[in-house]
């Protein structure tokens, strides 16, 4: 069965790009427009990987990760940040709340696929 990925980003263009790259490689992709929508999706169904942006209206990426990690079913699920934020202090915060990794935009679809395969196969 195809692995399921949740992509959370307030930019429709980014969601399109991420979904296109991952679907082409055989993954099943669900999109959410911000942290709140992402959390609702993640609660209603199980995902093998969550990819999230940082700067979003409502709930940002770091808060989303913190909320996901508090749910027993997402305690160990890989969660990757995909963001324009490239600063070390942001990365450290990401690490502290339980992010699995950090990808800085603009993202290379090939690199995104490599990392995805590495963390969920």
């Amino acid at each position: 069965m195809a692995k399921r990925i949740l992509t959370v980003d307030d930019s429709a263009s980014i969601r399109q790009m991420v979904a296109f790259a991952l679907k082409s490689a055989g993954y099943e992709v669900t999109e959410a427009v911000d942290g709140n929508a992402g959390l609702t999706q993640a609660r209603s169904q199980a995902f093998d990987l969550v990819l999230t942006d940082q700067n979003m209206p409502g709930m940002d990426g770091l808060t989303l990760i913190r909320n996901l990690r508090a749910l027993p079913q997402y305690e160990k699920t890989p969660i990757l940040m995909l963001t324009t934020e490239a600063g070390d202090s942001m990365k450290q915060q990401g690490r502290a709340v339980g992010a699995t990794g950090w990808l800085v935009k603009p993202f290379d679809p090939q690199k995104l696929l490599e990392v995805t395969r590495k963390v969920i196969g």
Binding site: T84, K91, T100, G101, K105, D108, K111
Partner: peptide, 10 residues
């Protein structure tokens, strides 16, 4: 190079 850094924490 049209791509940002990738870092895995664990």
């Amino acid at each position: 190079e049209p791509a940002g850094d990738v870092e895995l924490f664990s």
